[in-house]
């Protein structure tokens, strides 16, 4: 666009260098911008958002006399449904030594495999070494949706 002027040789080579610097710079810059963008566009290894936390499922799909572990942030939560159909949620962290408890349908208790701690379905200790009852979480049922929320 700019017309060549009466430039002598050394200035000419300087101009060439600048041209390369500009061109190279633009190319590198494009790389620096588009590499993250393309990497971002590539679907991540884990296909989709991990559904975690508070939404625990549909009430109609939770069996009576069952208990499942629901991930609640960084903590596991034991959601149980009693034979009467009531849904309760407790911290699944055993109060004894922080193992993760499980629901035992045969004995109808929440049970910790580590030291045989047993809690009833209200989270109270009924056997074994746990010193405290399980912390209870709030269960909210909206329409058919079971939402577990921390008790504050």
């Amino acid at each position: 666009m700019d017309t060549p002027t009466t430039l002598d040789q050394p200035q000419h080579s300087k101009r060439d260098f600048l041209k390369y610097l500009l061109g190279g710079g633009i190319l590198a810059w494009l790389g620096a911008v588009f590499y993250p963008v393309f990497a971002y566009l590539k679907p991540p290894k884990q296909g989709d958002v991990e559904v975690t936390s508070v939404k625990a499922g549909k009430l109609s799909e939770i069996e009576k006399e069952s208990g499942v572990i629901v991930r609640f942030g960084n903590k596991p939560v034991m959601m149980i449904r009693t034979a009467e159909g009531e849904v309760r949620a407790f911290s699944a962290t055993c109060t004894h030594l922080d193992c993760t408890v499980q629901f035992r349908k045969d004995t109808g208790v929440i049970w910790c495999a580590c030291h045989n701690g047993k809690y009833d379905l209200n989270g109270r200790v009924v056997g074994g070494p746990p010193p405290r009852p399980l912390d209870e979480y709030r269960v909210i049922i909206q329409a058919d949706e079971v939402i577990i929320s921390s008790r504050t």
Partner: peptide
């Protein structure tokens, strides 16, 4: 990269204006 590019751009602006 941005610094080099910005520098090159700066030099070119000066050059163009000198011309």
């Amino acid at each position: 990269i941005i610094t080099i590019l910005a520098f090159a751009l700066y030099i070119s602006i000066r050059r163009i204006e000198k011309e």
